[in-house]
Design a protein around this nucleic acid. Structure first.
Lengths: 351, 351
DNA sequence: ACACCACAGGCGAACGTTCGCCTGGATTCA
DNA sequence: TGAATCCAGGCGAACGTTCGCCTGTGGTGT
């Protein structure tokens, strides 16, 4: 095995032309059982495996899928994307594809990167995550006419394929759950207005509040970035409100934000759950081990990955099958941080 | 741009042979300024980029690096590997390589996967993580004569390249820190004996205890897997020991284990830090946000990735440069969970 | 004026496949 | 028995590069 065996080596050993070997191995040709036997024997003896580079050159394909992902800010963790990545790798393998990772660059340089990967024939298609409004990657790739599937709703024209999690449903469930626990003043720690994902989730909040016939005080909606401090500061802001206006429950966009909020509550000498309920998002692995255990909204990241790959492979094999846009529900996971609510004195008087 | 431009297209436009274009673009040939100008103009107009598949076929290379990684058990999170992965992707790109992900299979099937990736010419080399004693992947790849660099110490013969974090140093620092805080009975929540990484870290513990002249009670060493429950149960076990034998500080192998231990302490009505100090490992992003904030040992995962890629690329370019084994130090990050120790009455009497 | 050399640039071949068409011998049918 | 049919298998070409060698021209030294 000093040199890798090629079709010609196998052919010489089997006493046929190398093209015949190629065809037989791919079941493209009927041959006598005897010849077939000689060929398979030669393949086994030489340990022959087709050279994918040569194959790809001929077929103008690479059987590689590019996965564009943005390196996380230091210290920010995203278990959802981690699970998603594992999912697409496993799914791709089943279809005979592999995942090529590349970091997402900035602006024009980024466009060049995509163009390069496509034009140089490195990848056959793309998977994108972290889709935001007017994501610049979509038009770039559409102009290159390369198949793509996004994890996240896209609003391009023509429409492009995507799979997304309906975060609104989870938030809606969360609000309903809080209402059932007796909460009436429910706040939301949202993301900035430019965040598509954040707005979709927030919509679930408004919908559920309206459905429950509860008013929404503008002071209950605070927007900020994905970090602990935002949750901490925003909760302090809530706690500074007069008791009658102060929310008794908070829905957040991220577990880390929820953790910040929980800390602010505790530092005020209050108890999370009993005094103020807190709900996170993503159901980070540690959520269940926090004290109190954090109620959170979990995303079916694995399923998303499976669907994404399935859609992309169907595009790559030329099938223009119907619906290329899939929405999966998120799901509320109830734990201690949203249980045990005991309204304060004046509250109970009101009810 | 309906069809991708090739060397021949550029050559036709520039009025030279396509081989000349190839050589000029790679600076392998001196040409008249005039011809060079015509060629670069043609390249720009056609948006030509060399087809990497064809190039790789000719050069018998793929410029792809395989990264073998084991899908995590559900709910287990490993921010270290996440950071490591991002690091190798970025570093590889700088050298003109890309990272190909593939899930690690089991046993014989696994060997077949590696063989396939190499023999079919898909990847030029491998990066491995999660190295354990007698890792089966090393001999497989060595037999295939394919360059590899591991994240984790290997003890193969002939030796193979690796980069690893010296976890022992961090544990040593942790113990020294605990001793400085006044602790004398320090326990260790270790990993099973088959864990190479665990044993290396535990060695740091023994070394530091010996250096401080402190005896180690066998009851203080407990072994278990990487989960919350192990930390929780083991700590309960410690708490059941008679006060004079009970450890006042615990060093663990993972933040999640430390979290379990903290919970057991709190449930017993004791205070982490003041009564019993707890130290984690990996410095997970949430560690600083726990209550109390968790002292932990951080690994320079990003640097490890940079070194791994550098070593691999040097192997791939045929350089047999000297030292191919690098050990980077881990570092103790002190937070509340190991501060504020106040020995109980009888302890102070002893001192 | 002749041999020599440097150098710009061309040309054929090779990398390992896959694809489409061709060939020649055996089989079938009238 | 002759022509039409079938089928196993061969052959040349192509995918887009890179590599090594060859050629022709212009300049230089004697």
């Amino acid at each position: 095995m000093s040199r890798k065996a090629t079709l010609k080596d196998v052919a010489r050993r089997a006493g046929v032309s190398y093209q015949t070997v190629s065809k037989v191995l791919r079941d493209q040709m009927r041959v006598s059982p005897e010849v077939r036997e000689r060929i398979t024997a030669a393949v086994a003896e030489l340990g022959y495996r087709p050279n994918v580079v040569a194959r790809n050159l001929r077929a103008k394909t690479s059987h590689l899928i590019g996965y564009s992902w943005q390196p996380d800010r230091q210290g920010y963790f995203n278990p959802i994307l981690e699970e998603f990545e594992q999912s697409i790798v496993c799914a791709a393998e089943e279809f005979g594809y592999h995942i090529l990772l590349f970091p997402q660059g900035e602006g024009a340089e980024q466009a060049e990167t995509y163009r390069d990967l496509v034009i140089t024939g490195r990848v056959d298609g793309f998977i994108l995550s972290g889709i935001e409004y007017h994501d610049p990657r979509i038009p770039i790739l559409q102009r290159l006419q390369v198949p793509l599937v996004a994890f996240g709703r896209t609003e391009s024209d023509p429409p492009s394929a995507y799979v997304d999690v309906d975060g609104g449903i989870g938030v809606q469930q969360a609000v309903e759950h809080l209402v059932a626990q007796g909460h009436r003043r429910i706040a939301a720690l949202a993301w900035p207005e430019y965040s598509r994902v954040g707005n979709e989730r927030l919509a679930g909040y408004f919908q559920a509040m309206a459905a429950a016939g509860l008013p929404v005080d503008p002071a209950w909606i605070v927007r900020g970035e994905s970090d602990y401090n935002y949750g901490y500061m925003a909760m302090q802001q809530f706690l500074a409100l007069p008791p009658a206006q102060r929310p008794t429950a908070v829905v957040t966009m991220l577990d880390l934000i929820a953790i910040g909020a929980m800390r602010a509550i505790e530092e005020r000498g209050m108890t999370v759950g009993r005094d103020i309920a807190v709900i996170g998002f993503d159901d980070t692995p540690v959520a269940r081990y926090l004290k109190p255990a954090l109620t959170s909204i979990s995303q079916p990241a694995w399923e998303v990955g499976q669907h994404v790959v399935r859609l992309l492979v169907s595009q790559l094999s030329g099938e223009t099958t119907g619906c290329q846009q899939i929405l999966l529900p998120s799901k509320l996971v109830i734990r201690e941080s949203s249980l045990g609510y005991q309204p304060a004195e004046q509250e109970r008087a009101h009810v």
